[in-house]
Amino acid sequence: MSNKVAIIASNGGLFDAYKVFNIATAAAATEKEVAIFFTFEGLNLIHKQAVQQLPMPEGREHFAEGFAKANVPSIPELLEMAQEMGVKFIGCQMTMDVMGLSKEDFVDGIEVGGAVTFLEFAKDAAPTLTF
């Protein structure tokens, strides 16, 4: 059985962030080796400023109350937890070039790489998930 979980994060909303980081931290807690490839809007999830105020999907703003009531951890908290548990973050070089962003714009500890960097990790991972 594979001990790796590979995740592609390609969307940048609050809900997307929860899907990505919840699965990632749960997998890491289950002693899996986890890597997340952040590409296109997914880069918001590790961008120093953007991650502090990720948008709710339009018309779903009322869920904010539900998040508070369910005592769901904040995305920055989940992000930190994921890193602490050894989840590897890979920023997509190509998207960063297109958007004019550099490694310094992102949280500490990320790697920057191309598609092949991720594919190399994901080649024997099960499951590979896309959000």
Partner: peptide
């Protein structure tokens, strides 16, 4: 107590 997924798992680990 009071924690939402995935925190109980993370804390247990």
């Amino acid at each position: 107590k009071g924690l939402a997924c995935p925190m109980p798992i993370v804390k247990t680990k």
